[in-house]
Design a protein around this nucleic acid. Structure first.
Lengths: 151, 151
DNA sequence: TTAAAAATTGCAACATAGTTGCAATTTACT
DNA sequence: AGTAAATTGCAACTATGTTGCAATTTTTAA
């Protein structure tokens, strides 16, 4: 049992259970967000699919993780690093979704610009996703081009 | 047969077929974007589900319509009003997705602010969605509150 | 520390969104 | 009008996500 993660659950008044700790430990080990299906794969048969869904939903509600939809409409999750709560999510950074490897990056350095909504449109949440080719895939493509140019 | 719509298809070098004209005419009649399932409903059995999917995909590729994912990850479509093409979409406006009625609004007046990406992250496309309560639902809620206050 | 209450899990079954291959039909071309 | 090319419809399938309920685990508190 991982103390740090158990404490995190305690902080949000959630029972400390195997599945939850497992999910948290995977999320913590990742730099970019991870999709539900990918998580399901990593976990294998250890945790039921339904439990995984419910765990992620609960974490999202509590503000432990945040959810972003990738270009297929599939949910991706990442640990919130700022102090988020049930009331306010402070994860208003831009996300980058690679169309090649499908990875979803949290660009923490890029805050989402503030916009003024039309009258009577009341915003609760914003989502800014940039689709394109990520660093890893760009460099891979460059290498390939270089190797062809060597003659 | 609607001439204006048939010409639109011609402009993009697409065959003029019943299903395509039907889909275009529905899209033209709408102010906000419409979801795939909603379209399917409106159309009834007239057009096969698969045809609808293929039609929408093709229109999106050609730049006749643009696609936005709502908070469930479901595809929503709206006619492009600026001059979009296969190469460049100029629909970089903010979208508003109502969490009450699920309507997806194109806020044409709000251009998506330009951001500088980290080195080697090559952007192709951006997507800015604001989730919240739309005008219609806000006013409906206000009316309800007023009626309760009348005593 | 143990028993009851509350929360969480796993299972089965289902719902919804979207895809693929292929034969039949429709549209475009000349 | 006749052929080539594009599009459609059907059937079957995949993937993501949900619901109800009984069994198990965790928490609470005496």
């Amino acid at each position: 049992m991982d103390n740090e993660l158990a404490e995190l659950l305690g902080k949000y008044k959630l029972s400390k259970t195997e599945p939850r700790l497992k999910v948290l430990s995977i999320l913590r080990s990742r730099e970019s967000a991870i999709s539900q299906p990918e998580l399901e794969n990593l976990i294998g048969g250890e945790i039921d699919r339904v439990t995984l869904y419910r765990t992620l939903t609960k974490f999202d509600e509590k503000g432990i993780i945040h959810k972003v939809l990738d270009l297929n409409g599939t949910a991706n999750y990442a640990l919130c690093n700022s102090s988020c709560s049930e009331d306010t999510h402070n994860d208003e950074h831009v996300h980058f979704n690679c169309t090649t490897c499908l990875n979803m990056y949290c660009l923490e350095a890029l805050q989402i610009p503030h916009l003024v909504m039309p009258v009577n449109f009341v915003p609760h949440n914003v989502n800014f996703i940039v689709y394109g080719v990520c660093e890893k895939c760009t460099l891979k493509a460059n290498k390939y081009i270089e190797s062809k140019n060597k003659t």
